[in-house]
């Protein structure tokens, strides 16, 4: 059963990562990237690594999203059409 849980979490992470790469809006891309970190927290917890899960929960979903959002607040929000 644990294998099915791992499989579905990996599928969710891959879908979210594809969305983060293919989305045209930068803010949406950053928020979807937060989903990758959230899925990683679940997987690290399943893999019996609570230290790494705690670090990823604080950094991957908390502070790195905050740094991204603060950084892109004054750059261009839309990707330029080329």
């Amino acid at each position: 059963m644990i294998g099915l849980l791992i499989l579905f979490t990996f599928l969710a992470i891959i879908v979210v990562a594809l969305g983060a790469i293919l989305s045209k809006d930068i803010t949406q891309s950053v928020m979807l990237f937060m989903g990758v970190g959230l899925g990683s927290v679940v997987l690290f917890f399943i893999f019996q690594a609570p230290d790494v899960a705690l670090t990823e929960a604080v950094i991957g979903t908390g502070l790195s999203t905050a740094v991204f959002l603060l950084g892109i607040r004054h750059t261009s929000q839309e990707e330029a059409e080329s």
Partner: peptide, 10 residues
């Protein structure tokens, strides 16, 4: 540039 950094983190 920001999208490249997001890809890097993935």
């Amino acid at each position: 540039l920001v999208k490249i950094l997001v890809s890097f983190d993935i």
